[in-house]
Nucleic acid binder design. Structure first.
Lengths: 231, 231
DNA sequence: ACCTGAACACCGTTCAAGT
DNA sequence: ACCTGAACACCGTTCAAGT
């Protein structure tokens, strides 16, 4: 095996935007949002900080770019199947996001940040478009397209964020931790004063055995039902 | 006017947890999440950094505490009126959050962060409880309480975040800026390729003249309709 | 118990300089 | 055009020391 020991020579355009994005995603997957530092990036890519700024701008811009990349990939992934119903199309988009957040938990937080900081940026628009497009096929009157699509999008984003514990939740790293976490939450609700928290008390049982994915789909079904009823 | 020039003498328990929280809220209102630094806090309160940590812990913990405070206040504010229908109660909660975020825009981001980082913490539970409690009165079958309440909560949180532009959006500070921002977004959608973005293109018109609060309430009405239909 | 503030480790970002 | 890396300003947090 030839020696790999090169002196720190100048590299000429071996660093690309895509390389930086890939490295950033790896760092985020490994260490959450705190895991992405300019220094960690330059170490991993064996380059200087200036090179990062030259290619992808600010750390914050990189974070946006990287979120866009993950979301766009999730939205573009089509299941190789027969032409689906509009309901199915919506489910595909929703589950695509669900799965993307499952492998890249930091996306949940960033999605939320984007929603508030850049409410009509590419990420939000991409999701809105994919889901909203089905309104016509569903026979929803155009006057309520916006509201119907908003409901779906917000539910999906919210549910995806809340479901994917473990990404940024400190102390929750494994699936076992996750289960423990949910059981602890369920227990905590049961111990709440039923006079003050009748609802949380009542649903504490459902939390223990429920399947996330199933629950998620049930929520979508409920909204689709509601929309169907208004058309 | 007597001289205020005291030497930097020790103060004895003049600093309280509440004072720090109040000061933090002021800093956040003035400068967004970036405006809250430990140093800015110690300057404003004329104290040392250790005192902050002694009373409220970490900056991140303070951020959580402060969000809890604002949300709890919003949830506790009752309109002095007659006993309301369950639908009205839900609207009161939703609008309470809407208004709280309007005056404290940074709450939108923090609400989202809490949803992903501490999905069943006091803030989320508080909101869930207030809204979920109405499910029984609405006659919703208990089997779908969780899903029905989730839909409402996620819609409210998402809509509130996306509606309140100006809080953390750089370059958007005044109401006029906000209007310009929305018009620019609307224009941008119109310029999108209708082949790629038929939906955004179709609803771009609705964005210009719509009233946020009205739209927000329309969304809630839609979900309540959907829920009513399932009971 | 409550507070001080210097010290520490670690950030993101810039920019003159190199090729 | 692309990259380097020292330098800068500014963070959050700790902790020995004071009262």
């Amino acid at each position: 095996m030839a020696t790999r020991a090169r002196r720190t020579e100048r590299r000429r355009q071996v660093l690309s935007r895509e390389q930086i994005i890939d490295a950033a995603i790896e760092l985020l997957d490994a260490g959450g949002e705190g895991g992405l530092t300019v220094r960690a990036l330059t170490d991993r890519l064996a380059t200087g900080s200036g090179a990062i700024y030259y290619h992808v701008g600010t750390r914050d811009e990189l974070l946006d770019t990287v979120t866009e990349t993950v979301v766009a990939t999730a939205l573009d992934t089509k299941p190789a199947g027969a032409p689906a119903t509009p309901e199915d199309e919506i489910r595909v988009v929703a589950l695509g996001l669900f799965d993307a957040v499952a492998v890249h938990p930091w996306v949940a937080t960033r999605l939320a940040v984007q929603l508030t900081r850049n409410p009509w940026g590419p990420v939000t628009v991409g999701i809105f478009e994919k889901i909203g497009r089905q309104m016509r096929a569903l026979g929803v009157p155009q006057a309520i397209w916006f509201v119907a699509a908003s409901t779906l999008v917000h539910y999906v984003l919210g549910a995806v964020s809340q479901t994917q514990i473990g990404g940024d939740t400190p102390g929750v790293e494994s699936v076992a931790d996750r289960k423990k976490f949910l059981e602890a939450a369920s227990m905590a609700w049961r111990e709440l004063d039923p006079a003050d928290y009748p609802f949380m008390h009542a649903i504490s049982g459902q939390m223990r055995e429920h399947d996330d994915r199933e629950q998620f789909l049930a929520g979508i079904a409920l909204i689709l039902d509601g929309i169907a009823n208004l058309r």
